[in-house]
Nucleic acid binder design. Structure first.
Length: 567
RNA sequence: CGGCGAUUAGCGCAGUUUGGUAGCGCACUUGGUUUGGGUCCAAGGGGUCGCAGGUUCAAAUCCUGCAUCGCCGACCA
């Protein structure tokens, strides 16, 4: 490709609404342009990269015999009514009507459509196991789209679905998919971690997320410094502290306090946050007689609502109740003392003695409170977020916490959808069996942003070879004044093209500085500079975008040198 | 959904307090100059100042409503 015939729309200035570096660079390098909140047009350079990601994903899916299909983005409501998700899904689901006033939706995911396909097309156990995938545009009406294509409303996703007669078969496909995902992220040159994950609203049993480690990530990942253990903080287990609770040494005392901020309130009491607890009022589930459940964690810890929601006593969906609206009591004064309903106490808080807590009256706190004597514990449970330095639940090492960008997620769905949508086959014994399912997603467009988060410097993007929009670029110095330079550049361009190298020939009538900075911004990994300076010796200059040091090459060596660098 | 803020040329912004001819930098076009790291000079094109209504002799500027976008929070794969 000649840059004079290419749309190379680079920007010097950073658009003001781009916060994270990948968003800034994608705009500056002319990869995407915003159409509306969370909606982007992929321009030629951006699309080239997106297609590279798709290519790797597609190849690895094919390598485990997953079959590619393409399902519609617009889906009829009746299938979603059948699975129950028409009602379960919130405003994130964009619903629309056709001209006959029939209900449709823009697909955020495709379990219903694939279930509909498989129940019609697959009728015998002999056709199993079966894995199908597609690379499709999804739509989720995110509350707050941000960070460019990292969290867009419309995005490209690879989604795969597998169908099995037995759990063992599902486990087998799940393991294959897990391995394929590892190969994909390795080939894409990403620093990633598979982590134990929450199954979220899609439901099911086992689940792993694949995270690209980056400070701009939106998820906290906890991982052990002594083993391979890694989990989303939502899921990472906080081990109960060892040892016995100390015996009470203080009497319960009442204190008038000012303000309603925990830290400010503790200071005059001379109580450390580790020696105090905070309480949360949540709706109780039907299995409990009380209306509310009280959740208690140590004041320096954070409540983990994913864990709390899984408690039998707590209503799902998790609903935090504002005690001010219910009892005219500010949340900070909620108290386990004299609370009538179930009191679920985090292990660390349950370990405390002589601690401080709210008194159940506005403006009053207790010190010297002790469990059993002053307040009951219904059950000690794990309902807090782990923090850095906690012992790893795997038993080896301590936890560290890093930010991650979720780029892949695999689930063992079980029979959630196949039951609801009656997906089954006749087994060997002639009996009807409901299938068990797995589903496996990769955020294809998000990967583009994630890769930039990991591969950039102050001049622009530094693409790994497998992702770069072009593999090599030829930058001629003053070609429009020098016939020799032009001739050599043209010759190299032809040679590289003939060898199948994706090469950009910067034949614009621009000053060298402009070309250098544009090509570095766009991030083309291999640069050839053709200039009068070296032509007398029959040489040109080679520079790798990442390493940066310049090497002189004989003109004849260029093509093979680039080929070697790429392999 | 709640709080805050923004909306003026393709991009980044000034002008709004105190109403009176629409500005700057980058980008773009033309000519010249320069040529191994975003040259320099000159000339030029491009705007219903987000939309609608109101006040006024006169509104980018004051008032009202709406829309869009962003940030923080809550929520959510």
């Amino acid at each position: 490709m000649r840059s004079s015939q290419y749309l190379l729309s680079t920007l010097k200035e950073t658009p003001s609404d781009a916060e994270v570096v990948s968003h800034q660079l994608m705009l500056r390098a002319g990869m995407i342009r915003k159409v509306a909140a969370g909606l982007y047009t992929w321009t030629p350079s951006g699309l080239r990269v997106l297609r590279k990601v798709e290519k790797v994903v597609r190849e690895e899916m094919q390598s485990i015999d997953a079959l590619e299909i393409l399902m519609p983005m617009v889906q009829p409501a009746d299938l979603w009514q059948e699975s129950g998700r028409w009602d379960d899904y919130g405003p994130e689901l964009l619903r629309l009507k056709d001209r006959h006033q029939r209900d449709f939706l823009l697909g955020p995911t495709h379990e219903e459509i694939i279930s509909e396909l498989v129940r019609k097309e697959v009728s015998s156990y002999k056709q199993l196991p079966l894995t199908l995938f597609q690379i499709q545009t999804k739509f989720r009406d995110e509350i707050r789209p941000r960070f460019g294509v990292m969290r867009a409303r419309e995005f490209v996703m690879k989604d795969a679905y597998s169908f099995h007669l037995t759990q063992e078969s599902l486990q087998q496909s799940y393991d294959q998919m897990y391995a394929a995902y590892c190969r994909i992220f390795e080939r894409l040159g990403l620093d990633y971690r598979p982590v134990i994950a929450d199954t979220g609203s899609i439901g099911g049993n086992s689940s792993h997320e694949f995270h690209v480690l980056a400070s701009s990530g939106e998820d906290d990942i906890a991982f052990s410094d002594g083993s391979d253990y890694a989990a989303n903080v939502e899921m990472a287990e906080a081990l109960p502290p060892k040892g016995e609770r100390a015996t009470p040494a203080m009497d319960k005392q009442e204190h008038q306090v000012k303000g309603d901020e925990l830290a400010a309130l503790l200071q005059p009491l001379s109580v450390e946050a580790q020696q105090a607890v905070k309480c949360f009022l949540v709706e109780a589930s039907d299995s409990v007689e009380a209306e509310y459940v009280l959740l208690v964690v140590r004041a320096d810890h954070e409540l983990n609502s994913v864990k709390a929601e899984k408690l039998e006593q707590v209503a799902s969906p998790f609903n935090l109740v504002d005690s001010y609206t219910t009892h005219e009591l500010h949340n900070v004064f909620l108290s386990p003392v004299d609370f009538s309903g179930p009191i679920m106490v985090d292990h660390a808080a349950a370990q405390l003695s002589d601690f401080a807590c709210g008194a159940g009256r506005n403006g009053v706190w207790f010190t010297g409170v002790n469990w059993q004597r002053d307040a009951k514990i219904t059950e000690a449970v794990d309902i807090r977020n782990v923090i850095e330095g906690d012992p790893s639940p795997c038993g080896q090492g301590y936890l560290k916490i890093a930010r991650g960008i979720e780029v892949g997620h695999i689930f063992q769905l079980g029979k959630k959808y196949s039951n609801a949508m009656k997906v089954g086959v006749l087994s060997e014994t002639g009996k009807h069996e409901t299938l068990t399912m797995g589903c496996y997603g990769i955020g294809v467009s998000r990967i583009v942003a994630a890769a930039i988060e990991q591969h950039h410097d102050d001049r622009g993007i530094c693409w790994p070879d497998n992702l770069a929009p072009f593999q090599a670029v030829i930058i001629p110095m003053n070609m429009h004044k020098s016939a020799r330079v032009q001739e050599t550049a043209e010759k190299l361009y032809q040679q590289l093209k003939d060898q199948g190298v994706e090469v950009l020939f910067d034949d614009r009538k621009e000053r060298p500085g402009v070309m250098f900075s544009d090509m570095e911004l766009v991030g083309i990994p291999h640069q050839i500079v053709v200039g009068e300076r070296n032509l007398d010796e029959g040489m040109v200059e080679y520079q790798a975008r990442k390493a940066g040091d310049k090497v002189k090459l004989k003109i004849e060596q260029v093509a093979s040198h680039i080929k070697d660098a790429l392999s």
